[in-house]
Design a protein around this nucleic acid. Structure first.
Lengths: 333, 333
DNA sequence: CTGTTAGCGCATTCAG
DNA sequence: CTGAATGCGCTAACAG
């Protein structure tokens, strides 16, 4: 049985109130000697306050929740997590992470958040599992939250958007401007099989629309490196192979470069390759990877939104920030 | 204000006990009509039980905690998380993840676990942040836990070990047997700068000891892909370059292959490369990556340990399992 | 079949 | 400076 404040109090010969005041360090005057007795007793018993009881009473958990698609997902998730951890540490919060990689787990995650696991949430879930209505419903409970998403109609929370459509269109436009005509789009499953094109696929389509002549080639396969390699191998092995591949992730793009080289094709001579995300790995690939994404992976502005909201007296008005994305041309295109 | 069971009860015209029984689905008989009124009231108010209150009362959270080094860490973390999520779902638990990438956060994580955030923990933290004493202290509180670690002296919990020393020694032995004499070890910071060699470095050293003649070359740089690329470039650019690189991770090994090729060296002709981890990416690298690690990334046995412990009446005796690791020779060596 | 009651462990009044 | 009493929201035992 874990020791309780009551047991500490008995051992120290004081009341539970005194134990609480000493250990939570509030500004009630406590005699130095009493304080020491309490601290000794707590140490001796290995006492740690029960968080469930504490949050029930204080109506705060001092925790924030990071909601991501998968453990070990995109590299930028790691940067986001770093920045969140850093600011949370500084403000006395701890961080728990929830992972949402199916509709069922999205439902479960919302349930956990509604159950009060944390005082606020930073949510970045790709794919279509966490639907707008779920999120808006969650925000309607008053939970402070920041959502990184380009979806429209997110009410009651701060929203962080990314101009990925425009940036991807620019990248594909660059491919067209440099003479490429058979440009393949290699996307993630959820993006390719959506009814209405959005995001990266939409950027590709918009750019292609401006050059009506160019042929559209759309495939999946960007979900993991091996699948991307196989998809690229098929694309590039066909008689009417594309002269460019626009991949929805840098990891997939690098797989495409590998596939090209293994087929004896030169990059960018025979086929240009552009990815999305601007991960560091693109700097050491050969050739270096052209990509679209943020120039610096700094998420402190996003994280600050959450803590502003947490520490506000009144719920502040919903804010929206748009992060900047750039097309970075390097050797692969 | 989030609605409480009391408000649901008032709206439905019943007592809070009835609300509790209806919503938690226990086997107390409730009149169908009453049940429906409760459900309607709950839906109308958007009621979700307060988990803090519930766990305080039930002395269970129905949550398990996964403790990892970093968000977006090694690929096998993702597989471990998948298997944990799957079994947790099946048994009505949710999963929260804690990340530990510094000694301070290790302390904080232990505090959170002691505070009762979950009913049990699955812990896999590389590096030296989460020390044995911290872990044993945590286990001593009675928290069911499974630790994936080769550290000795872990008391009161199940331990999952990996024969990485032997497997790495085998890999390096293979390099020696095939005539390599200048074999560089490229490790993670925490492993290279430890007083006593352990783990992968120890395996390397043991193998090298058996061939007294071979020269030892030990570097860091395996922490991320870019650092590994730079380190490998330096190693291979020197006049007395190594004829083999044993990297402490597959990702670093692949960076080493890139570095070699960018220097015009052939792999494995001029330099052999072996990694650790057996990630899928090794199958599409060129040449395919030789590696040591598990043949299949299946962690259900590990996860089962935890749930066995959670669902046991009595705390079961501490168990230990040893997972199997194999040297997989492929094209890069 | 349903309501009343007594805590779970803690933080916080209010008395002293 | 310290202690006793109250209740956060919920579940489980006990009455009815």
């Amino acid at each position: 049985m874990r020791p309780t404040a009551r047991q500490v109090a008995e051992l120290a010969g004081v009341s539970v109130a005194t134990v609480s005041y000493v250990l939570s360090g509030r500004d009630r005057p406590v005699a130095p000697e009493t304080r020491q007795r309490v601290l000794d007793a707590a140490r001796q018993l290995g006492y740690t306050p029960n968080q469930a009881a504490r949050s029930l009473r204080k109506r705060r958990t001092q925790r924030v929740c990071l909601v991501l698609s998968t453990v070990g997902g995109v590299p930028s998730d790691a940067r986001l997590a770093m920045d969140l951890h850093e600011m949370a540490d500084a403000r006395g919060y701890s961080v728990v992470t929830l992972s949402v990689d199916s509709a069922a787990r999205a439902q479960a995650a919302v349930e956990v958040l509604r159950g009060g696991i944390a005082d606020g949430a930073l949510i970045r879930v790709t794919g279509d599992h966490l639907e707008r209505d779920l999120l808006s419903g969650l925000a309607a409970t008053g939970l402070p939250m920041v959502v990184m998403s380009n979806e429209s109609g997110l009410e009651g929370c701060d929203v962080v958007r990314t101009p990925e459509v425009e940036a991807c269109a620019e990248a594909v436009g660059h491919l067209l401007d440099t003479g490429r005509r058979r440009i393949a789009f290699m996307g993630q499953r959820y993006e390719v099989y959506r009814e209405q094109p959005e995001g990266r696929l939409l950027g590709y389509l918009q750019a292609m629309d401006r050059h009506g002549s160019a042929e559209r080639i759309i495939t999946g396969g960007a979900d993991d490196r091996v699948a991307a390699y196989q998809t690229a191998t098929e694309l590039l092995g066909s008689p009417d192979r594309p002269d460019a591949i626009f991949a929805a992730s840098d990891r997939a793009a690098i797989s495409a470069i590998w596939a090209a080289r293994d087929l004896g094709l030169s990059v960018p001579g025979d086929v240009a390759v552009v990815g999305v995300g601007n991960i560091d790995e693109g700097l050491i690939s050969n050739p270096q990877l052209s990509t679209v994404g943020p120039l610096r992976h700094d998420y402190t502005d996003v994280v600050r939104l959450l803590f502003d909201r947490l520490q506000a007296e009144e719920p502040p008005p919903a804010r929206e920030i748009v992060r900047s994305w750039t097309f970075v041309r390097r050797g692969s295109s």
